[in-house]
Write a protein that binds this DNA or RNA. Structure first.
Lengths: 217, 217
DNA sequence: AGGGTTGTGCCACTCGGTAACACAAGTGAT
DNA sequence: ATCACTTGTGTTACCGAGTGGCACAACCCT
């Protein structure tokens, strides 16, 4: 319907159908989960609403949690693609990573993307099992990216922790940005998110030198 | 049997029994999960082995995953206590956090602790649902610590990201240390883990300034 | 010893997730 | 158009995690 249409214009009919039910599942899931809560919605109800069998659901998504986290997962997939496409040429690794993330954000041109991400994040914050799953996914992406960096930078020592730590910083900053963005009133769009990301990234260097002065002093 | 004995010397009989079955569940779970795999072991089998009803299991642990992650959770609880007990007095926040973690590690004096953690981590690495749950727990600890820091440092701006980022760095470094430690041959003890932590923490400043030089140059 | 409290075992149940198999729908040929 | 072939879907039956309710036993206090 909304997101994948541009890229799926001329696919075989079968594939288009699959994408349509996939998108319907995502949208309906976000709606139902938001209305009745994640645990308050059974998979059967969701499948009834979309008129799909439970079997089909699990062919499309690996778990109940994943259907509501598709929007953010798209972003991370784009991030990995961007990182893959970039060549290291001067500047810090952290800057390279940040540039990839900005580019990935720029690619999320879909109309409802920001709203879906917002719904998804609110659900994640309210649902432990979704939170857990989300962090697991994040970590898998991080590991893929670490391996990619090691390859791209041609690092001799596989135990060199610097790429890993840089990625952790990127992730931490982005998480912060997402949290403040999703807490904003109204429906701030993608641009507002990018602004938050810039703020968060700007705070990174200070985090190391941040002095622990006692409050009385 | 092993860990909580020192502190539980003279508790009411009922509490001691509870702790004993708890410890038995942890040890048996680590053994069974390691032998047959996490998914290859049903809760019924575990409960039969410990001679406890499934109902009792869920009164002791909130999920099947948690029983195998108790050792690390003990460490994080100790970390929070240490952080709570320390007063900020000069030095960076990051150093304060690192000191708390070292102190928490020093408190894990239990004989089998290192071995249990190793088993637990290997299981976690091999079991997605355990990994997810573990990261969720880590994040909850992080949030508690962030709130604690904001209170202790008497920060005016609740959106100040520096404590959060510093904690993320601490966590990232510790995760790195755990991974390399658990991959070491033999059964390195707690001291070896502390050494790995020092190495990882030493790499943190470099992560920011790490240059992305192309491999050809 | 006896009454109150608290943990435990058993039973039945819901729901997420999977396997097997039959069937319908899309695809590509003649 | 129609035929075989491939591929996605629905149905049924099932397993295992996790929960609620209730009776019962074990501990604790006096």
């Amino acid at each position: 319907m909304t997101a994948t249409d541009a890229t799926a214009e001329r696919l075989p009919l079968r594939e288009r159908k699959k994408l349509r039910t996939r998108q319907a599942l995502i949208d309906t899931a976000l709606r139902l989960f938001t209305e009745r809560g994640f645990d308050g919605t059974t998979l059967d109800e969701l499948c009834d609403a979309v008129e799909v069998s439970k079997r089909t659901f699990f062919r499309t998504f690996p778990s109940k949690e994943d259907v509501a986290m598709a929007p953010t997962q798209d972003l991370w997939a784009a991030f990995l693609e961007e990182l893959e496409g970039r060549e290291p040429a001067g500047g810090t690794v952290l800057a390279l990573l940040q540039a990839s993330l900005y580019a990935a954000l720029d690619r999320m041109t879909d109309e409802g993307w920001a709203d879906r991400v917002r719904l998804s994040l609110r659900l994640t914050a309210a649902t432990p099992s979704m939170d857990a799953r989300g962090r697991h996914f994040c970590d898998r992406t991080l590991r893929t990216a670490v391996a990619l960096l090691h390859r791209k930078l041609d690092l001799q020592d596989p135990r060199d922790l610097r790429p890993r730590l840089a990625l952790d910083l990127l992730l931490a900053g982005f998480q912060c940005a997402l949290e403040t963005w999703v807490a904003q009133p109204g429906d701030p769009g993608r641009a507002a998110l990018v602004a938050e990301v810039r703020t968060a990234f700007a705070a990174i260097p200070d985090a190391l030198t941040f002095e622990a002065t006692p409050p009385s002093a």
